[in-house]
Simulated assay, not measured.
Amino acid sequence: MKMRIFGGTGRSVGEVGLGTWQLGGGWGNVTEEAARETMRAAVDAGTTVFDTADVYGDGRSESLIGRFLKDTRAPIYVATKLGRFGSPGWPGNFTRDAIRTHTEASLKRLGVEAIDLTQLHCIPFDVLKRGDVFDHLRELKQEGKIRDFGVSVESMEEALFCAQQPGVAALQIIFNVLRQKPVHVLFAEARRRRIALLVRLPLASGLLGGKMTKATTFAADDHRNFNRDGKMFNVGETFGGLPFTKGVDLAEALKSFVPAGMTLPEMALRWCLDFEAVSVIIPGARNPEQARGNARASDLPPLSPALHAQLGDFYLREVEPHIRGPY
């Protein structure tokens, strides 16, 4: 796997990481054995970044990673997140004491002395703008409990604000063929400030996996059954920021752009990797086959400039007008 420098940290990481929400839960059941085999397959394929969060499976994802770390000598860079799990809840999770408590809990579950990267987990913009959460993270870094800190954001407005805060080492963003705004708004600033970019949802929650249809349903314990209000998902509700049926149609249309010898998900992952500002993509995987498939994107040739132009035009013409919510 090809390596990239993780922003101003200077650390070299494999450009295809592993998102581990699905190992904790929320995407259908994954057994501990399957989770361990998936992590092992990812590492064997060259992955060195695991992204997790304390809320994934109420700590299960972090605990699984912690047990895996005890059994491997591979240099795993663990990025976790806090702010959306446990007592006291919103907005109490963003006080100094709560951030410290949740950090200590993550340290225990991961079984490490210091967390490589702690990220604020999509917390309200008004909380970010107060600024004290960054002071709390700087204090934890000074104490050696975390090595670096960053923010997982929903919108580019949030990303640009966070990029200006002293000490922010990384931003986690939504970026894929159906969400191209960071190219025009964030990438130049992130490179200028040497901020690492972790790309989540490079396959748009599965839309770019090439298998969804308008008849697709999800397991009862899959978070995609629910919209933002906790109501049952149904056709017409938003899915990855798009109406579900529109998203399926767009993914189907994208198949006509796939180069010979590639699949839609391979093209989608390769597309993300073609941007130098991207430090690592963190697609999820529920089994070893998916982990190895994701990692293979690193070995694929870059997409042609002509194809990039076509996909950019497709986004502006067919996708952008339908995106809903903050972005």
Rank of each mutant, 00 (worst) to 15 (best):
P283Q: 02
Q310E: 15
R192A: 15
L82R: 00
C162D: 03
A285H: 05
L316D: 14
I5E: 15
E32K: 13
Q142N: 12
R286L: 00
T31G: 05
N93L: 05
G261S: 15
G17W: 04
S155R: 12
M39K: 12
P321M: 14
D221K: 09
V168F: 05
V49E: 14
R193I: 03
S63E: 14
A220H: 07
E139A: 07
Q22M: 12
V248F: 03
L203V: 13
K145I: 01
R96E: 05
T20H: 08
K108G: 02
T263Y: 09
F233A: 12
G59L: 02
L140V: 02
A268T: 01
P75S: 15
R194L: 09
D274E: 11
G14E: 02
R96A: 15
R194P: 10
F226G: 10
A163N: 07
S87T: 13
Y77E: 10
S205F: 12
F257Q: 14
G210R: 04
L64R: 07
W271A: 06
F50N: 01
M212P: 00
W27L: 12
M3K: 11
M232K: 08
A291H: 03
F233S: 15
Y315M: 08
I65R: 08
K255Q: 14
A79Y: 01
A251E: 10
H223W: 12
V183R: 15
T72S: 02
S298W: 00
A42V: 01
V183S: 03
